[in-house]
Simulated scan of single mutants.
Amino acid sequence: MPLLEAVGISKVFGKLTALDNAALTVDEKEFHGLIGPNGSGKSTLMKCLAGAEVPTQGKVSFANTDITTFTPTERARAGMSLKFQITSVLPTLTLYDNILLALQAQSSLLDLVFSRTRGRQHEQVMTMLAQFRLVDRAFDAAAALSHGQQQWLEIAMALAGRPRLLLLDEPTGGMSLEERRVTGELLQPIKQHCSLIIVEHDLDFIRDICDRLTVLDQGRILASGTVAQIQANAHVQEIYLRRA
């Protein structure tokens, strides 16, 4: 049984059909990339999976549960986590407190009222910061980080609740080549406990980390398969790679 399955997903905005009968299947501990030209429907599909948009038609199942009409909060409780392209860390707080707040979002109101979480979660905060090579900056304000480091911090925050599925929308946008390389290295270990759906324009980056790719064009699924299968697909080469 797939971890996530989206079937017959269409999304219409007025006279614009952003998605037309799109489908996507993601297994446990699979890294799955969404690629396609600008305007192909990648981000719209991601939003339909995350609950930021409700499909005009179709069904989204997660862990064998129909979540098509679930809110983003309900999806998070079910085990999904999302990081959009725009960084949303709290810039005036330290890195430590950004991670702590992400962890505290999983705590009960009683624990928060009686301040039981900070000491209990200290080790987990430091472990998350170390995992994303930020532990030396733990007590710096998030605003002092480079763009790439802020992206790493936000990914760490998205993983704080140990989701079963992480959705990343263009996480390497604006990064240097070295930051992109490091981002790939930082993401690889999460496969031990988490699946990944990633929208990305950097084809070299996405080919290096993903097990499977789905290609969209004009709101439709053009092809889906392993990286090798997509690279060898003549239709993909003609429609997508020549536009990229």
Rank of each mutant, 00 (worst) to 15 (best):
G119P: 07
S115K: 13
Q106T: 07
H32W: 09
S115T: 11
R120P: 03
D111M: 13
E74T: 06
A63W: 14
N21A: 15
P2N: 03
V89A: 01
Q121P: 11
G8M: 08
G219F: 14
L168V: 12
S224Q: 00
L3H: 02
I190F: 05
G148V: 14
M175T: 02
D66Q: 08
S88G: 03
Q150D: 01
E154Q: 02
Q151M: 09
L186I: 09
N64S: 12
K59F: 10
A158E: 02
V60P: 02
F31K: 06
I35N: 01
A232T: 12
G51K: 01
V60H: 03
P2A: 10
F84W: 08
R164M: 13
L159T: 01
L34F: 09
T56A: 14
A156E: 00
A144N: 11
V236G: 06
D204V: 15
Q237S: 12
F70T: 04
L100E: 02
T56L: 15
Q124M: 10
S108H: 07
D140G: 07
L4V: 11
A18R: 03
Q218E: 13
R242D: 14
A78N: 08
L100T: 06
E5V: 15
I86Y: 04
T94N: 04
T44Y: 07
L103F: 01
N98D: 03
V89M: 01
R243V: 15
A234C: 15
L110D: 08
L186F: 06
M157W: 00
R220W: 07
S115D: 14
I9M: 10
Q121W: 13
R137H: 06
T92E: 13
L45C: 02
Q104R: 13
R77N: 09
E178Y: 15
Y240N: 09
L222K: 04
T172E: 03
T71R: 11
E30I: 09
F205K: 12
L4K: 01
F84Y: 13
L101W: 01
Q124C: 06
K29A: 09
A142C: 10
Q151G: 08
V135W: 11
G184H: 11
I190D: 00
L82Y: 06
I67N: 02
H32R: 06
R118K: 07
K83T: 02
K29R: 08
I9H: 05
R116I: 12
I155C: 00
Q104C: 15
L166W: 06
D97L: 11
L24Q: 00
R118Q: 07
D211C: 10
E179Y: 05
D27H: 07
Y240E: 09
A22R: 05
L186W: 05
H122L: 09
R137L: 10
R133F: 13
L95K: 00
L101C: 05
H201M: 11
E154I: 03
D204C: 13
L90G: 00
